[in-house]
Simulated assay, not measured.
Amino acid sequence: MQLRSILADFDVWLAAHAPGDHRQLMPPADPTRAAALAAGRFRIHEDVLTWLSVHDGSQRDPVPAAGAFIPRDFPLLGVTGMSQGLAGMVEEVERAVEEGDEEFIVGLEADERWLPVAMNHTGGQLVVDHRPDGEYGAVLELDPSIGLNGVKRWDSMSHMFISVLEALQTGSALMTGSGPKAVPRIEEPADALPHVVWDLHFG
C-alpha cells in the first residue's frame, strides 16, 4: 500500500476517534521548501516528501502533547522543524569533530545524514536514515538522555504509519526503542478533545 493511501486512512481514523490529534495536522508543505530542506546534502527519501505533501507536521498548537500520536509521544515535524533539526545534527557533528569526539558521537548521537522527522517533549527524536552505509529510509530513534543511540524502529516511514495505524485500530502493543511496550488508548479530558496516549508496559 502506498504511503499516500496509508496517510488518508490514518487521517480518517484520527478524525473519527482522536479529533484532538486530527486537528493538529497541518496542511501540505510548500513543495519547493520540502525539496530543498536537505540543502543538497543527500537525496530525501520519498516517504518524507510524501508526508510533507500531505501534512506539514502534526503540531498546530505549540504545546507538548499536541499531535503526539506516534509512540513514545512524538509529534511529527514539518519542513521548518526538519530543517532546524538537521541543522542541529550538522552542528553537533562539527562540534564532535572539532573536539576529537567523533567516534563517540557520529552515527550514535548525531549524524549529518539523519533527518529528524519527529521530536518529543523530552528531547527524543525519530530520524530517517540517509547515510550511504546505513539503511536508506529507515526510521531510527535516539535519546542520549537514556542511552538510546540510533536504534532502528521501522524500515521506513510507510512501515511506521502502517504499524501505528494497526495498533490504534486494534489497541495492540508496539515495542519502543528503549524496551517497554507502548499500548494506545484514547484519553477524553473534560477540557479538551479526545486524543491518543500511549501507556508503557514493562516486562
Results as ranks from 00 to 15, higher is better:
H55I: 08
L49A: 05
V128I: 13
G147R: 08
G40P: 09
I146M: 13
K181E: 13
D21N: 09
A65V: 10
I186H: 00
H17Y: 06
Q84L: 15
V97D: 02
R72I: 15
L174G: 04
G150K: 08
F69T: 11
T170E: 05
W198L: 10
E166H: 10
N149I: 05
K181F: 08
I105M: 12
V12S: 14
D61S: 09
L77Y: 01
A38T: 14
T80Q: 15
S58Q: 04
H121E: 12
M89F: 03
G81I: 12
M26E: 12
V97W: 01
L76D: 02
L52F: 10
P75T: 10
G20S: 01
H121D: 14
R153E: 05
F74I: 11
T50F: 03
T176Y: 01
F202I: 15
P189S: 09
E112H: 08
G88R: 10
D111I: 12
L25S: 07
R185P: 03
L76G: 02
A68P: 03
W114S: 12
A16E: 11
E166W: 04
H121S: 15
A65P: 06
G81S: 04
H195C: 11
V48F: 03
P184R: 06
D21R: 05
D61F: 01
L174W: 01
N149R: 13
D101V: 05
V106Y: 00
D143N: 13
E141W: 06
E46S: 10
S178P: 10
G81Q: 04
G203C: 12
V93I: 10
V151P: 00
L52Q: 09
P189Q: 06
E98F: 13
D11M: 11
L140D: 02
P132Y: 00
V93Y: 00
V127D: 04
K181V: 13
E166Y: 02
L25A: 09
A29P: 11
L3E: 00
L108C: 01
H159G: 12
H195D: 06
A118R: 08
E91Y: 00
M175P: 11
H130P: 08
I44V: 15
M89L: 03
N149F: 07
E46G: 04
